[in-house]
Design a protein around this nucleic acid. Structure first.
Length: 349
DNA sequence: AATTCGGGGAT
DNA sequence: ATCCCAGAATT
């Protein structure tokens, strides 16, 4: 029996029940695949259900307001996924007259859809024979074939794409792709792989050579930068101030309180005597409360965040920010760390 | 080719 | 603490 047949067979017998596996509707598959980019199945589940019930088809998504879309994405991370999906939905409705792209090459043209996602949608929804190679598949293939090409280089990626194309099953490409990923997510996992219950362990070259835990191989390690964010929660009767993040930086499109960012750790005295702070206020400023420093870790950044609750009497640069009523803040998409802080009740007292 | 985009869970 | 996740876009 071929390895691919065994893995597909194992998939049919052991697969998890996931709602997006009950459909081949390309819109639903698209939403699920975008959400699952760099995101675990368990984290995406609830977001998928909420998103689909709010935007059941590509038309409803195309007609939505961007803030609405981002609000549904709030907490899931990588917000460009939501913005690009919104753009692509409008493209499909307005330029393609609502007909969803139905092959790999056309799916690739959608913003936010790369080689992996195009292959996943094409194979699952349209039965196209093309391998979807994600992080799970890199790991499975590298171990099965004891292939040490680094997965974070163009050459290595090409090598694994070849291996996957070699293995893919003609009759059920969507099932093959999902079977490989499911296998990588549940059996051939990074640490402590379940080689004892693996249905293809006897054919796994890495297992026989003892290299399982060294694979997949990677070239570079990521380094983390420190950033120091000071958020000013301005209390102006029942209002406060927000701004929308616009630069190509974290959280683009989301809202935040007026921000002062510093290069180093800095205490409150130093902050309020600095230029960035003083140009926002005139005269003496009363700070009601300063939060502890909150450490919020992203993939490439360690954020050190402090919130300052300030009564607005002397707040000067009001026009640079959006004034909103405190009650309506929950309508705005905000970063997880800000949402969490708000929920602790700072604005209510 | 290298960097950047979140957040959560496992180890 | 470190890794890595059904990756893609930008530089």
């Amino acid at each position: 029996m071929k390895i691919s047949d065994i893995i597909i067979d194992y998939y049919y017998k052991n697969k998890r029940e996931l709602v997006w596996r009950n459909t081949k509707n390309p819109y639903s598959i698209w939403v699920s695949e975008i959400m699952l980019q760099q995101t675990r199945v368990n984290q995406a589940k609830d977001f998928f259900n909420r998103f689909i019930s709010c935007f059941p088809d590509v038309q409803s998504l195309a007609e939505a307001d961007e803030n609405e879309v981002l609000k549904l994405w709030q907490g899931l991370g990588y917000y460009s996924r939501a913005r690009n999906m919104h753009l692509s939905a409008k493209f499909i409705v307005n330029e393609l007259k609502g007909s969803f792209p139905n092959k790999y090459e056309d799916l690739l043209k959608l913003k936010g859809v790369g080689e992996y996602t195009a292959a996943a949608i094409a194979s699952i929804s349209f039965n196209e024979q093309i391998a979807a190679v994600d992080g799970n598949v890199y790991r499975v293939l590298s171990r099965l074939f004891d292939e040490h090409s680094p997965i974070d280089t163009a050459k290595g990626k090409k090598r694994f794409k070849e291996l996957a194309a070699y293995m893919i099953e003609e009759q059920a490409p969507g099932d093959f792709n999902q079977a490989m990923m499911e296998f990588g997510a549940t059996v051939c996992i990074p640490a402590k792989p379940n080689c004892n219950q693996c249905p293809v362990s006897t054919q796994c070259l890495a297992l026989s050579k003892g290299t399982v835990l060294q694979l997949p191989s990677k070239k570079k390690a990521l380094k983390v930068k420190n950033r120091y964010l000071h958020y000013l929660i301005i209390i102006d009767n029942n209002n406060t101030f927000l701004q929308k993040r616009k630069n190509n930086d974290i959280w683009k499109g989301l809202y935040e309180f007026p921000l002062i960012e510093t290069q180093k750790q800095i205490n409150t005295q130093k902050l309020i005597s600095g230029d960035d702070f003083r140009k926002l206020f005139k005269g003496k400023v009363h700070i009601e409360h300063v939060s502890e420093e909150i450490k919020h870790r992203l993939s490439h950044q360690m954020l050190h965040i402090r919130f300052y609750k300030i009564v607005a009497e002397n707040f000067f640069e009001k026009t640079a920010y959006t004034s909103i009523s405190i009650d309506e803040i929950e309508k705005y998409p905000v970063p997880k760390v800000i949402d969490k802080y708000i929920r602790e009740g700072v604005l209510k007292n």
